[in-house]
Design a protein around this nucleic acid. Structure first.
Lengths: 124, 124
DNA sequence: CACACCTTTTACAAAAGATTTACAAACTTC
DNA sequence: GAAGTTTGTAAATCTTTTGTAAAAGGTGTG
């Protein structure tokens, strides 16, 4: 058993809304427990491990499914969807889609604006 | 996979306003993250690689699109425009047009004061 | 300053990729 | 081995990216 604070180093991920356990298939979104299936857990684990970094489709498909680059499938996308659903209402906040590349888990942070804001230019 | 700040040896370009990652499709203009599409990223990468040097249209069209000298297209110009927009407000500072030849990426340097009057820019 | 030529900008259409839903096959568990 | 759960796939739909055309704006030169 363990006490709060004495968790083994690096076994859990935690932020304001999500508690993720790398060893077990349960997690918490705020105070709600969510049960992840094995694949979902593996997938989220890999993304959380690389929080803030883009993980390319190829890598996910290779590491979790053992698929090579030649295999074309939507399986990953469907699993991402299932994960996002369980992470409600933060699904899209936590799991970002990088179009044409892969996905990225983002540590929770207060919503920011201006991220990709490209204003029109006007001279005065 | 990449986080701002954790640059891996020599994989990034950085100056006062721009952080560009050669491996991934994100970049930072000051503290704003910009997401580049694949083509935009390839294009900027090629220009940044040759910072300070003119890269002829032909070379860009050849290396990024595989187009031969015979092909007449405005595609490159449109992509340059999209890039400049995302690099706001430094689009024209970073990407210079070399009339009749191509484009050149210029490392950021302080504007010279008062020499040339440039009207205020305002976002609407 | 007129002309040819080049670039920028806008708008739109086509192509590529992601999301969503539904369903069937493959596993688990009892 | 029946019932419930998990996983993979197909297909329709939606979104984003990319390419092209055309109009407008610049540049350079005789």
């Amino acid at each position: 058993m363990f006490q709060p604070g004495t968790s083994k180093q690096g076994k859990n991920y935690q932020d304001q809304h999500l508690l993720f356990d790398f060893e077990h298939t349960s997690a918490y979104v705020d105070l709600r427990e969510i049960i992840l299936t094995r694949k979902e857990h593996e997938l989220l684990a890999l993304l959380v491990e690389n929080a803030g970094e883009i993980v390319p489709r190829e890598v996910l498909l290779e590491r979790i499914w053992g698929y090579g680059k030649d295999i074309r499938t939507r399986t990953l996308d469907v699993h991402i969807r299932r994960l996002r659903k369980k992470l409600f209402p933060f699904g899209d906040t936590y799991i970002e889609t990088i179009f044409g590349v892969g996905y990225r888990f983002q540590r929770y942070r207060e919503p920011r604006s201006y991220v990709n804001y490209v204003p029109e230019l006007v001279a005065v």
